[in-house]
């Protein structure tokens, strides 16, 4: 948290992003987003537009995307709102990256349930691949952060990489996922435990067993 800081507004940054503008497709999307809010309340659209902008920046430089100051200014201008209010929003939410980031943003959950289920091993696996907390690898492929609970405790330990979650991890899974991503392949998302689909109980259901294959009326048994 406290490590977050805005990328300084340097002439180089201005030169790179000063001419930022929506692509034709995103311009259309931005229009749709703004139209969701009543006239005069267009600044409500700041969060989706920042997300869109982050994705466009990501697409342009083939990273997860981040928000350079000129891009925030562009959004502020479009929504006719003071730039400081946009910066407030962008700095508040951690899913907006406010400094350059790698191709894959590896966010390992280190909160209690994940820790109990072995997130330390996951972190060790990442470290073994050369990832360093708060840093991007030299090839620009992976940025690594340890985050707090992402709400996937039933399938802990988990990691979020860009828009996808990878759950029920082992150190080997983690290594494999990183390797596949580096090789340009899309690993299986969601749970990595064999035989598990979502977050159903491991080893089969222990309650409501009669309902697994067909509907069953339990009321008479109470």
């Amino acid at each position: 948290m406290a490590d977050r800081h805005i990328e300084p507004d340097t002439p180089t940054l201005r030169a790179r992003w000063g001419s930022f503008a929506w692509t034709a497709e995103n311009a259309e999307k931005a229009k749709t987003i703004i139209a969701r809010y009543p006239a005069g309340r267009q600044r409500s659209a700041v969060m989706p537009l920042l997300d869109l902008a982050q994705r466009q920046v990501g697409a342009e430089e083939n990273t997860q995307g981040w928000l350079p100051i000129p891009v925030m200014e562009y959004v502020a201008k479009q929504l006719d709102m003071p730039i400081i209010r946009v910066v407030e929003v962008a700095t508040f939410y951690t899913m907006y990256n406010i400094a350059p980031i790698g191709r894959f943003h590896v966010q390992v959950c280190g909160t209690t349930p994940c820790m109990l289920r072995g997130s330390d091993d996951i972190i060790a696996a990442c470290k073994a691949k050369g990832l360093k907390k708060g840093h991007t690898t030299e090839d620009g492929l992976f940025s690594f952060t340890e985050v707090e609970c992402m709400g996937n405790c039933a399938s802990a330990p988990m990691v979020q990489i860009n828009d996808d979650n990878y759950e029920d991890l082992t150190a080997a899974d983690m290594t494999r996922i990183l390797d596949e991503l580096a090789a340009g392949k899309q690993p299986k998302t969601g749970t990595q435990a064999p035989g598990r689909h979502t977050v159903e109980p491991l080893g089969g259901p222990t309650t409501l067993t009669a309902m697994v294959s067909a509907n069953h009326d339990y009321r008479s048994e109470w």
Binding site: M1, A2, V87, E88
Partner: peptide, 19 residues
Amino acid sequence: VDEIGALYRGEGMQISTYL
């Protein structure tokens, strides 16, 4: 004149003028 804002959040919150 909107020029002072509260950046970041929680313990990391900081009051600052734009840039």
